[in-house]
């Protein structure tokens, strides 16, 4: 009996791998191999494995989060207040720079530092909200797809394939043309940008655990499908999804930046790093500070999140554990 069950489990897992592994991006491929059952132990070891680099990344993330939360008291000026007579002032330390505007001013005389602080709100809000929405939608679709199989599975996987075949930026531009470029639209767009990846991963994971003995046992004891899904399957597939979410977070932040860079993201005068970067582009020769500071902020934030995601993956992956 026991041997037979193991056999079934192996077959299903083996069959699920190519499907899950077909997702785009190296991160997703690696994640597909993640098992779910030994994460409790992994979590206990996290504390002992924080390298200085990871600590730095955490610090950066924390710093940006604090900037976003306390942008009001921290910012020396209203981020939308203009002073045309003080336009294009260089940052402190460069000839012509002044203490009033430590990072200089933009073409309308707005304070770059203040805009940077408030811009962190937009980037982080869209990043986290978008990643969470994507995680929720994708996980739900993946659970249903992997658990129910049959026509529903086929329908969802068909949608995933279609979605992944289309360049998302084009979809986003179309959606903005139709619905306008409000913050809500941007957050929803950010959410939808990653759902297919989560769906594929979740489905593969479900296929991997649905025939496990503890699931079969619960089923034999008469557990309802929702209880099976929520109590026995979901907790065992959540770790790789969280790792994927960190990778998606970066791409969502960059998506907002790209759209704002193209002038299609956050509406002026609300500051966003992407729109600041877009505006700064034409001034790189004459007023470099307009584009360089938001560029650096964006780079620091996405690098920190990527490194954290990578670290999280190592920690949660039993095959990489030394």
């Amino acid at each position: 009996m026991r041997a037979e069950n193991t056999e079934v489990s192996r077959t299903v897992r083996g069959a699920s791998r190519p499907t899950a592994g077909a997702g785009t991006g190296a991160g997703r491929r690696r994640l597909a191999a993640l098992g779910g059952e030994r994460q409790g132990a992994a979590r206990r070891r996290v504390a002992g494995r924080v390298s200085p680099l990871i600590a730095l990344c955490l610090l950066v993330l924390l710093l940006f989060a604090l900037c976003a939360i306390f942008a009001g008291p921290l910012a020396p000026h209203d981020p939308t207040a203009q002073d045309l007579r003080a336009r294009l002032r260089p940052p402190l330390g460069v000839a012509g720079g002044a203490r009033a505007h430590p990072l200089g001013t933009d073409p309308l005389g707005r304070d770059i530092l203040s805009r940077l602080l408030y811009g962190a709100r937009v980037s982080l809000a869209i990043g986290f909200a978008g990643a969470l929405i994507g995680l929720a939608i994708g996980t739900l679709c993946g659970l249903l797809s992997g658990f129910l199989r049959g026509p529903i599975d086929e329908a969802i996987m068909f949608l995933v394939d279609v979605f992944l075949a289309l360049p998302f930026l084009v979809l986003a531009l179309t959606a903005i043309a139709v619905f306008g470029n409000g913050l809500t639209v941007l957050i929803l767009l950010a959410g939808f940008s990653g759902w297919a990846g989560y769906t594929r991963l979740a489905r593969g994971q479900v296929l991997g655990v649905r025939e496990r003995q503890y699931v079969l046992a619960a089923r034999a004891l008469g557990a309802s499908p929702p209880r099976l899904l929520l109590r026995h399957i979901l907790p065992n597939i959540v770790a790789p999804l969280i790792v994927l979410a960190t990778f998606e977070l970066t791409s969502v932040i960059l998506l907002e930046a790209s759209l704002s860079f193209l002038g299609l993201g956050i509406r002026p005068p609300t500051p966003s790093w992407g729109s600041m970067l877009g505006e700064g582009r034409t001034y790189l020769h004459t007023a470099w500070w307009i584009g360089v500071f938001p560029g650096l902020a964006l780079m620091a934030l996405t690098t920190a999140i990527s490194l954290l995601g990578d670290w999280l993956r190592d920690v949660l992956d039993p095959t990489l554990r030394g």
């Binding site: 939308t80 203009q82 309308l108 002038g263 299609l264 509406r267 002026p268 005068p269």
Partner: peptide, 25 residues
């Protein structure tokens, strides 16, 4: 065009006008 627009919207704010930029392509 855009910079003048943003500046004018700010000037109008000072006389009590609730204006905003509608950016179109």
């Amino acid at each position: 065009g855009l910079q003048a627009g943003e500046a004018i919207v700010a000037m109008w704010k000072e006389i009590g006008i609730n204006a905003e930029i509608l950016l179109v392509s």
